[in-house]
């Protein structure tokens, strides 16, 4: 059971997006619809699990001085494969994801797990850890994508849920939801909610503003 901890702690307790604040760039870019968020999450999970397993398998043979170059090479190769597969079987989604599948290479989450976990742990554990982190990332992406697509366009996975006033329905789409800042706001609110439920995630304050009870100055 202890092994399974690596699978479920990254879901909420040690979530890569909401606690470690990694992978924000893609979380903003691909969450305007559930479809793109889902495909992006799947691509990241595949790349993350495969790269972690490969790096973990050859970890004893990797010279320390060039380990980052090697990790990047492995991750980049896998990303190219994932990108090509998406282009081959889901071309329109690939167009909507634009460069963000390719940019999984630079996603700190992937390199972070390789460097922090896969370099020091056996293959099975690394795979579990990678899967957990990928699922944690996907969970946040899907949550934000759900809110943004539902309130920004009135649809989910492209299927109409709220008929918009443009199609003769009642729902006024919130255009703000389709702009990048809304993902920041939603992510911020999500982090706020999680930390209200789990105060252990709150970082110590950098400095304290002293408030004396009798001080009335502004």
């Amino acid at each position: 059971m202890k092994r399974l901890q690596h699978l479920y702690t990254p879901l909420i307790d040690n979530n890569p997006v909401t606690l470690q604040i990694l992978g924000i760039c893609s979380a903003l870019a691909v969450t305007t619809s559930m479809t793109t968020a889902l495909v992006m999450s799947l691509a990241l999970i595949v790349v993350l699990v495969a790269s972690s397993m490969i790096i973990s398998a050859i970890r004893h043979h990797i010279p320390t001085s060039i380990r980052l170059i090697l990790q990047i090479t492995i991750i980049a190769s896998l990303v190219i494969v994932a990108d090509q597969v998406i282009q081959a079987f889901a071309f329109d989604i690939s167009q909507r994801l634009s460069i963000f599948v390719g940019l999984i290479v630079t996603n700190c989450l992937v390199l972070g797990r390789a460097e922090a976990f896969a370099m020091r742990n056996p293959v099975g554990l690394s795979a579990l850890d990678a899967l957990g982190n990928g699922l944690g990332y996907g969970l946040v992406l899907l949550l934000i994508g759900f809110v943004r697509e539902l309130f920004g366009a009135g649809t989910l996975f492209g299927q109409t849920v709220f008929p918009t006033i443009h199609d003769g329905g009642w729902f006024t789409p919130l255009n703000l939801m389709l702009l990048a800042p809304s993902a920041f706001f939603l992510l911020g609110l999500l982090i706020w909610a999680i930390r209200s439920v789990r105060p252990a995630q709150i970082e110590p304050v950098d400095y304290e503003i002293s408030i004396e009870p009798n001080r009335r100055a502004p």
Partner: peptide, 8 residues
């Protein structure tokens, strides 16, 4: 700003 962006 929210009003202007959300309901253009």
């Amino acid at each position: 700003a929210f009003l202007y962006f959300a309901f253009p």
